[in-house]
Design a protein around this nucleic acid. Sequence first.
DNA 1: ATGAAAGCGCTAACAG
DNA 2: CTGTTAGCGCTTTCAT
Lengths: 349, 349
Amino acid sequence: MAEPPTTAERRSRRGSGGITLTDVAKLAGVAPITASRALNTPSQVSAEVLKRVREAVERTGYVPNMLAGGLASSRSRLVAAVVPTIVGPVFQESLQSLTEALAQAGYQLMLGQSGYRESREDLLLEQIIGRRPDGIVLTGILHSAAGRRRLQASGLPVVETWDLTPTPIDMLVGFSHEQAGAAVADYLYAQGRSHLAVLSGDDDRALRRYRGFVDRVNQLNRLGAGPGEVPGFQVPAPTSVRSGREKLGELLALAPHTDAVFCGSDMMALGVLNEALKRGIAVPEELAVVGFGDLAFAADLQPPLTTVRIDGTRIGRLAARFIIERVEGREVGERVIDVGFTIERRESA
Amino acid sequence: MAEPPTTAERRSRRGSGGITLTDVAKLAGVAPITASRALNTPSQVSAEVLKRVREAVERTGYVPNMLAGGLASSRSRLVAAVVPTIVGPVFQESLQSLTEALAQAGYQLMLGQSGYRESREDLLLEQIIGRRPDGIVLTGILHSAAGRRRLQASGLPVVETWDLTPTPIDMLVGFSHEQAGAAVADYLYAQGRSHLAVLSGDDDRALRRYRGFVDRVNQLNRLGAGPGEVPGFQVPAPTSVRSGREKLGELLALAPHTDAVFCGSDMMALGVLNEALKRGIAVPEELAVVGFGDLAFAADLQPPLTTVRIDGTRIGRLAARFIIERVEGREVGERVIDVGFTIERRESA
DNA sequence: ATGAAAGCGCTAACAG
DNA sequence: CTGTTAGCGCTTTCAT
């Protein structure tokens, strides 16, 4: 069994040694390009050839090498997604639907974490571009100007998500965080609450919700001669149940008359709910609580949590569609979509 | 400015039209292979050449094409991870640390979702292998026998995680779900509880925790002549706060004397906590609650949740190390690591 | 320390 | 519908 290798076998130590398209083609008795067509564009090939190629694939267990295919065709069928972090449930829905929509179209997802700080963004971007993806989905707006320029220069389809900006790099699927904050303020006022407060993460988008909320409260207060400054706390992102508990304590020490809190995330809201429970504060009677995100558990808390809902699944699906249509040459009509938000009215407020 | 393209420029419509290593090499006045060495193995190149190449890279904004590099060297620097779903916080910690550990070593992560049902597993695997990753990290055991064979045949480094199995495909980082279930039963008995019940997801691993728990309870009951069957409910994975609430209701209808519940996930435990709150059942006095996963919020619930902690970060880091060491030819000593689990003792039980 | 030549496995381009 | 040829951009191999 252990014969000395022939010249041909020994010829080279390169390559993976696996089955290649050429092997399949030989077995099927056709040229490699014909085998390629049988697999990629079966309609361009006779039924007879198609059958023989498929048999050969079956027999050999051939799996196409997409590195080679991507190199030759300049189409990698890879889409990169950049998220601040996969920990924290906010973007999961989007990531999930993005992955699924891409998979259905034969694309795969490459995942990169940028962190909430700006540091690694540029390096990450370079690594990503090196893979020559067919498109890039960004979660949130890219901080670094150099990064934005580099992306623009690359000519790749780019979709920014979860935010709106007047100067998108390319395509955009998101909503206005300022408006969301303002809408919550309106909602609480309409419920008859007058002493509003806010707990927020310190990342860019959370802070814009914060500002939208505070600005609207101030505006309403001026009209109605309500109380002055809006009490508010920021915690380092990512927010947590613990930070919600702790900050509620500080808030009540600072502003004991508070009758409504807008929380920058459902996690913080859960913390607020738990801390209120511990302190014997009735929700919503004494304190109204509004969250953000409408995580899966929000409706099932005690009391059910009123929260801002973003259709993350839709964001992911639209992002995938934008990229795919661009790659496949079908031009997209709208390149900016505001998916909006809704306030899910439940018992906590 | 808009002169007609020269013959050379028009020569071909192939390629990306971007900067290539050859361009950089020309600018630096060296051969392409020398530029390649300057970037990949700088120690093999003179200081003078290194400087010129780096300048050329800087000036052109060159980004290496890793498809081409991967094809030529049979090293893609890509690692694939397969998870049932990224929704659901259980594997997040592992994914996060895996991504980070890989990034540090210059590898990137490709993410695939297999779903909790077996259907898409084989297709996904084929797509993944087509990318010629340098390694594959599986979360949980692969269901399909064909898939296991295909992986084994591929010769790729494979790490299975979050489980133990007597017949690993290759490498393994996990813990025993049976033992975890049994340990919770022991713990609750030691707390003086005697009417134990269990709520569980219906995925493979959750069911093994379920079985470990029930078997141990039965064993203890036989010795102590305790009550008979252990009341238990299964819900479709992924588990949720809602399913926890609902099943607690059904459980109490079926077995009103229950004084301890083991929940298959912290999410379900949160639901149980909330439902108990609504029904005025005191936790832990009347009902002890144990979760699984030690999610970030577990310690901050009211009451703080006793739960089984898995060191997901360690799992991710070890998986990355296993793959990288194998790829880089350094052989790994231990190929199976049981990371164990701990019961985080808090107020809920 | 540097380079020339020859591929990696596949597909675009252009015939027939 | 099928094939030939010539790359894609990089790295291995083997010289110098």
